[in-house]
Write a protein that binds this DNA or RNA. Sequence first.
DNA 1: CCCCAATGTTACAAGTATGTGACAGTCCTG
DNA 2: CAGGACTGTCACATACTTGTAACATTGGGG
Lengths: 230, 230
Amino acid sequence: MSGKTVLIVDDEPAIREMIAVALEMADYECLEAADALEAHALIIDRQPDIILLDWMLPGTSGIELARRLKKEETTAGIPIIMLTAKVEEDNKIRGLEVGADDYITKPFSPRELVARLKAVLRRATPPGIDAPIEVDGLTLDPSSHRVSANESSLNIGPTEYRLLQFFMAHQERVYTRSQLLDQVWGGNVYVEERTVDVHIRRLRKALGERHDYLIQTVRGAGYRFSTQPA
Amino acid sequence: MSGKTVLIVDDEPAIREMIAVALEMADYECLEAADALEAHALIIDRQPDIILLDWMLPGTSGIELARRLKKEETTAGIPIIMLTAKVEEDNKIRGLEVGADDYITKPFSPRELVARLKAVLRRATPPGIDAPIEVDGLTLDPSSHRVSANESSLNIGPTEYRLLQFFMAHQERVYTRSQLLDQVWGGNVYVEERTVDVHIRRLRKALGERHDYLIQTVRGAGYRFSTQPA
DNA sequence: CCCCAATGTTACAAGTATGTGACAGTCCTG
DNA sequence: CAGGACTGTCACATACTTGTAACATTGGGG
């Protein structure tokens, strides 16, 4: 569900593996690097959403890498969690000074790791920015996640909501079922194209006679959201 | 009608001016600042009722400033509306969610600005004053730290209190479990997201049938506090 | 006017998200 | 130290969603 990419930097393959398994179970995509150089290459190449960085690394130390990452414009925004075996308070302070967003002391439970990773990601993700869209008495307000037709709010499922939101943001244009699957369901799912029809139907039903004209069928092509009656 | 003071923080003089004119027309008093330092000084000195804060600022970013303001006791109560550019919406930006009260995307119409500003002011707690919030017979009084429904006071725990307070100060907007953990529990804790559900449940139970409709579930999204029935 | 392909509709079984009650650990307070 | 208040998690119950298949209807070309 998250789809976030995590880079794990640790010279101990066993530890990397342990972490990777835990994270993959929580539905994160994992990249692994054994040293700072390898890590840096992966960061540039794959743009991970967050980095788990071991304190001790052969060659360039973890803290050194963190400092460099935080200096560079393109990487400064990537949150970093430091992993350390030492319990010294000193490390904590220096780690955070360098710009790590959190630190975890080994040994740690996979559970704790995932939870803290989630917390850091949560803080690093900017909130959505949206204004309500209104068409002929039909209003969709992203901030309250509410759809209402002339005052009274409609009850529609998540998929219908996304579908409607997409349509209202892209009016007057025909979209094929395939395009809608890409845009509304997300590119890498496999669903029958006919499924789109069903959701269109559900959406129309929810909109009611007053507004269902907005969603128009274009035979042989797809669907269109238009204020102009067909 | 208002006489409220608005602080406009943006490094672009033309934009400040445009906003100022619009607001003065709506009978607000305007202060202007070009950067975070100037803004901070004005906030201390003039105690504005609300702040319009540009997301991107030279030096300290808008997000940074917002976070600091929300941390300090004396300024935490001042509502903040973030201004952001459309282009940034995609993914380039990383910032901390700091509890801005609303977001507006540039470009925006003066009309929209005034409307949302009014909305935020309406539901915001005046700075420095612990004014009770009342909704449909349900009252939360920060000064006595009490919640009462139609005269009789309710017995709720600290977490439920904070949760309710947050909701009543931010009505009509959906918050994900993640956001609630940030805002109500505080950013650095790690707790299961489902824990939120449990506290929501406790809060609803405490509110009783008379008021539990105020806390609404938005399937697939989170929770919302709204006087308008789902 | 008939037929076929495209689309509309309905039903449904499995999958997910949320509601709920119970429980154990913790932190006071008396 | 016992008792009570509060919290965070779990396990189970419920409620809603979702993708598909199957059947009905429609529309346009021949």
